[in-house]
Amino acid sequence: MADTHDNQVCDKQVHDRQGLDKAAPATSSHRQARAEGRAPLLDVCDLTMQFGGLKAVDGVTLQVHPGEVVSVIGPNGAGKTTVFNCISGFYQPTGGEVYFQNRAMHRLPGYRIAQAGMVRTFQNVRLFKEMTVIENLLVAQHMHAERNLLKGLFKTPGYRRSEKALMQHAGDWLERVGLLEFANREAGNLAYGQQRRLEIARCMVARPRLLMLDEPAAGLNPNETRDLDDLIVSLTRDEGISVLLIEHDMSLVMGISDHIYVVNQGQPLADGSPEDIRRNDAVIKAYLGEE
């Protein structure tokens, strides 16, 4: 019952924010947007995920504003990935609400959430390994493509044209992540770092508004991590998307995040700017243990 009550509060806030959104000047930056409490792109309220007797996520609330890089950090097993799974529709959360561009997401199947503009990666590489690099990017554009079976069978001019557009878009992104020369290679045969870059490109061709990256730097060497850092910054700057990030590499997190949420044992521990988090005693305790 407590959940329902909180949800109503959430709903009301969203409505209020919508009103504010109209009033706010279009030029204000995202930092101001957060300060002014303007409509967030992603609004997660009191998210709860219960597996039998275990509450893996308990009352996590977070917001991502347009153009921001927001990180979720916490010790191993804190429930960060479960939060991701609930937001992206990989799991159905047992409680709480997820709003994306003011639309409720928490009861939608995963593919509808992706279509709404939220796309994610997983901790481990999950490419379609037996398909070629370019096919991986074409599949990710499936939702934007003409899917009419007959048009596809008879290869109408319109179908060919749109297929060419998909190819072009995929090619652009391959070039951007430096994988154009491998376009016809099987994805499973790429080197690990290349596979990670391909995953991000695959997300990006799906034209998301919010990119969710689950430990994108895991297993990368320092050079590759720096490239990744640049790539994420350029995505927010050039493509205008927001990024929600789970990461253990603290230098990466502190360097690129606009806002950080700390989760511990499934519960929210703290949130704030990288500076706030660095100085937060509770966070230091959770990471290093009591002294």
Binding site: S88, G89, F90, P109, G110, Y111, I113, A114, Q115, V119, R120, F122, R126, F128, K129, E130, M131, E135, L138, V139, A140, H142, M143, R202, C203, A206
Partner: peptide
């Protein structure tokens, strides 16, 4: 193509917007 993607990893395909 979507069919092949599903047979390799249906969970991922769904999160890329494939029904």
């Amino acid at each position: 193509r979507a069919c092949r993607a599903c047979s390799q990893d249906a969970g991922m395909a769904r999160l890329l917007g494939i029904n």
